[in-house]
């Protein structure tokens, strides 16, 4: 598994690097200078490829020595994501981005909260209560107190 994962990571990084190099072909140059806006993307792409090679070598070596993955990472250990909840939260973020301008903050935020509470294990009652309270409180803090412009959407007729 770790080796397979490392191969996937290496391939992904290489793909990103190739994409950057391919895109930077079309960047204009500065007159009288051998490089321009394409210099840093190329350097970074080179770094990504080196890192990808390093990760694959690391994976191969670990696979051969049978050791657990070399890296113990300072970050969170990998978790097997329960796919549905994961996709659910991601979909809520995308939905909020799409619906915020159309529905307005109150409705969009209420929808997100009502749907998010069950994902994080809360009851339907809790979801409804929070869906009613949280958007109003946040709207007061951000819009009324801090003057952050939030869209009213469908509620425009009653906007203040």
């Amino acid at each position: 598994m770790p080796l397979k994962r490392d191969l996937v990571v290496g391939a992904a990084l290489t793909a990103l690097a190739i994409f950057m190099i391919w895109q930077s072909q079309g960047f204009p140059r500065i007159r009288a200078m051998p490089y321009g806006p394409d210099l840093f993307p190329r350097i970074i792409a080179g770094g990504l490829i080196l890192a990808a090679i390093g990760i694959v070598i690391e994976g191969l070596r670990n696979a051969r020595s049978g050791a657990a993955t070399l890296s113990t990472a300072t970050s969170t250990p990998p978790v097997h994501y329960a796919a549905l909840s994961f996709v659910g939260v991601a979909a809520l973020v995308a939905g909020f981005a799409l619906l915020l301008p159309v529905l307005g903050f109150h409705i969009a935020a209420a929808l997100v909260v009502v749907l998010a509470v069950p994902i994080f294990g809360g009851s339907l009652l809790l979801a409804l209560v929070m869906g009613g309270v949280v958007p109003v409180v946040l709207h007061y803090i951000f819009y009324s107190l801090m003057r952050v412009v939030l869209p009213w959407g469908l509620l425009t007729p009653i906007a203040w």
Binding site: F27, G36, P37, F40, P41, I44, A45, G54, I55, A73
Partner: peptide
């Protein structure tokens, strides 16, 4: 973390994200 190639991978991913936008030298959107 302790893995050198992984730290570099992370750093370069961040740097790649930072290249998004108009470049300073000629004003080309990247």
């Amino acid at each position: 973390g302790p893995s050198v190639p992984r730290n570099f991978a992370s750093l370069f991913i961040g740097l790649a994200i930072a290249t998004v936008g108009i470049d300073v030298a000629v004003g080309h959107p990247r």
